[in-house]
């Protein structure tokens, strides 16, 4: 069964509710995560989903015929190898700016720097990983 990560914070919230009977803290944290990442998740669903997929796994609808497959954002190991500043740069200025694929376009004309920073933080939430570099 494929997990739908489209609103991972919401799933986390469900998990948090299940635990709430024995521990209130996870639910509260999940609700906070929902609110914290809501705007970034909306941007992801608008711009990133077309290639990176509704499950955030690199299997977007456009990925079928792409010569270079989009990054799997749920891959903790792969995402963990990318420094925070590179994530920001690749979103803002595109794949070529970090010697990666031209198929990753620059979104700096669509999203503000603040939105891109929020999106980068959201990606860390999705992969459940920090940067190892």
């Amino acid at each position: 069964m494929m997990m739908n990560n489209r609103q991972p914070a919401s799933l986390f919230s469900v998990a948090g509710l299940a635990l709430a009977s024995c521990l209130m803290l996870p639910s509260a944290n999940a609700a906070a995560a929902d609110e914290q990442y809501a705007k970034a998740a909306r941007n992801y669903d608008t711009y990133c989903v077309q290639c990176h997929g509704i499950n955030r796994n690199g299997r977007g609808i456009n990925s079928r015929d792409m010569s270079v497959q989009p990054r799997d954002h749920s891959d903790a190991k792969g995402m963990g190898s990318i420094p925070d500043e590179e994530i920001f740069q690749v979103i803002k200025e595109g794949g070529l700016s970090v010697n990666k694929s031209v198929l990753m376009p620059a979104w700096g004309n669509v999203m503000s720097d603040e939105e891109i920073r929020e999106l980068a933080a959201y990606l860390r939430h999705v992969c459940n990983c920090g940067s190892s570099k």
């Binding site: 494929m2 669903d45 989903v49 997929g53 509704i54 299997r59 977007g60 609808i61 079928r64």
Partner: peptide
């Protein structure tokens, strides 16, 4: 192909998202 607004018309497929 995916309508407008495309993101409203997607679902997970066996390999990748589909319309």
């Amino acid at each position: 192909p995916a309508g407008e607004f495309y993101t409203r018309h997607l679902k997970a497929g066996d390999k990748e998202d589909v319309v």
